[in-house]
Amino acid sequence: MSPTYRYDFDVIAGWIAPGERVLDLGCGDGSLLRHLMEVRDVRGWGVENDPANIVACIDNGINVIQVDLEKGLADFQDGFFDHVIMSLSLQTIHNTLGILDEMLRVGHEAVVSFPNFGYRKHRESIAAGRMPVSESLPHQWFDTPNVRFFTIADFDVLCAQSGITVLDRLAFEDGRRVDDDPNLNASMAVYRLVRARQTA
């Protein structure tokens, strides 16, 4: 995870209360959990499937559990965590809806951030006939770990269709808050999600 995205960390920390239980899916080297332990005194566990990141987390003193996220979170109890976070990894998972369902099963709230494929620079790149490469989409098309390419607008529709309530959404363009037409102007968005209340 690039240290460029520290602003993502700060937004997430703002949504988390001191002492919470937090699960970070695709936790990388554990930097975010380390940050949340320092500023929010959370009880944190990370999930990773990359051997080098497992070692990096242990080096960082972060609890890390090796799980293949494509296989879901079946071994985690319902509602065990206050927050389940997936920072800039949702676009690397095939089973998008499956993992969102699982996050909202094992946690009371989910926090998800992802690069916005609809960002102006990305659109310009496509219009010019090339796949976008940017700060938020740093890989070439042939070596990207991303398998799902979607926009803020796409994600809003998915949530609405899937019984997921968006409690908060903050959008950014390379670290600066974007409030005007985020689907066009933001390179990245962070969502706070909760399962929509069942109506009788």
């Binding site: 239980r21 566990w45 051997p51 497992i54 609890n63 890390v64 559990i65 090796q66 109890q77 065990f80």
Partner: peptide, 21 residues
């Protein structure tokens, strides 16, 4: 091993788990 890991986790213990290829 995963049974051990999740039983510890659900007690809130510090636990790390590596599955070595």
């Amino acid at each position: 091993s995963r049974e051990i890991v999740y039983a510890l986790l659900h007690n809130g213990r510090n636990v790390s788990y590596a599955e070595i290829e």
